[in-house]
Amino acid sequence: LLNGYSHVDVLKSKFNPENVIGGVCFIESTLDYEGKIVQTSPNHRALFGEFTGERTARILKLADVMSGTKTNIQLSDNIIREMWHKYM
């Protein structure tokens, strides 16, 4: 999952656009004095979905695989809106 939006067209141009899905993460972290990643908030949320908004077999399988983790995983029917919302 990459932050921002400008990479989407790059990914779609390098790969089959049907193989690219959208996603956003909400994880607050920083580096400590040794360069280790430290999560600075209990928030850990990720959204993902097909750019078409469809609930395809692969997106449902991905939702199933990622369920049961410490991260609040949410399947979005409008991932483009979610990506722009975070970007803005």
Rank of each mutant, 00 (worst) to 15 (best):
Ile21Cys: 03
Ile21Tyr: 01
Ile21His: 01
Gly22Thr: 04
Gly22Tyr: 01
Gly23Glu: 02
Gly23Trp: 01
Val24Ala: 03
Cys25Trp: 04
Cys25Pro: 04
Cys25Asp: 09
Phe26Leu: 15
Phe26Ile: 14
Ile27Met: 11
Glu28Phe: 15
Glu28Met: 12
Ser29Phe: 14
Ser29Pro: 05
Ser29Gln: 15
Thr30Lys: 15
Thr30Leu: 13
Leu31Ile: 14
Asp32Arg: 05
Asp32Phe: 08
Tyr33Phe: 15
Glu34Cys: 12
Glu34Phe: 12
Gly35Trp: 05
Gly35Tyr: 08
Gly35Glu: 07
Lys36Met: 13
Lys36Trp: 11
Lys36Ala: 12
Ile37His: 08
Ile37Pro: 01
Val38Gln: 09
Val38Met: 07
Val38Gly: 06
Gln39Gly: 07
Gln39Ser: 10
Gln39Leu: 15
Gln39Cys: 11
Thr40Asp: 05
Thr40Lys: 06
Thr40Ile: 14
Ser41Tyr: 03
Ser41Met: 05
Ser41Trp: 04
Ser41Asn: 12
Pro42His: 10
Asn43Phe: 13
His44Glu: 13
His44Asp: 12
His44Ile: 11
Arg45Leu: 15
Arg45Gly: 10
Arg45Met: 14
Ala46Met: 15
Leu47Ile: 05
Leu47Lys: 06
Leu47Cys: 10
Phe48Trp: 05
Phe48Asp: 00
Gly49Glu: 01
Glu50Cys: 11
Glu50Thr: 06
Phe51Pro: 00
Phe51Ala: 09
Phe51Gly: 02
Thr52His: 00
Thr52Ser: 14
Thr52Tyr: 01
Thr52Met: 01
Gly53Cys: 07
Gly53Asn: 05
Gly53His: 04
Glu54Phe: 09
Glu54Ala: 15
Glu54Arg: 11
Arg55Pro: 01
Arg55Ile: 09
Arg55Lys: 14
Arg55Phe: 11
Arg55Gln: 13
Thr56Ala: 05
Ala57Phe: 06
Ala57Thr: 10
Arg58Lys: 10
Arg58Gln: 10
Leu60Asp: 11
Leu60Tyr: 03
Leu62His: 00
Ala63Val: 02
Ala63Ile: 03
Ala63Gly: 08
Ala63Lys: 04
Asp64Pro: 02
Asp64Thr: 12
Val65Gln: 04
Met66Glu: 06
Met66Ser: 12
Ser67Pro: 04
Ser67Arg: 12
Ser67Ala: 15
Gly68Trp: 04
Gly68Asp: 05
Gly68Val: 09
Gly68Gln: 06
Thr69Glu: 07
Thr69Ser: 13
Lys70Cys: 07
Lys70Asn: 09
Thr71Cys: 14
Asn72Gln: 15
Ile73Thr: 08
Ile73Leu: 09
Ile73Asp: 03
Ile73Met: 10
Ile73Ser: 05
Leu75Met: 08
Leu75Arg: 01
Leu75His: 02
Leu75Glu: 02
Leu75Ile: 07
Ser76Phe: 02
Asp77Gly: 13
Asn78Leu: 03
Asn78Gln: 09
Asn78Gly: 03
Asn78Val: 02
Asn78Ala: 08
Asn78Trp: 00
Ile79Gly: 00
Ile79Glu: 00
Ile79Ala: 01
Ile80Phe: 08
Arg81Phe: 12
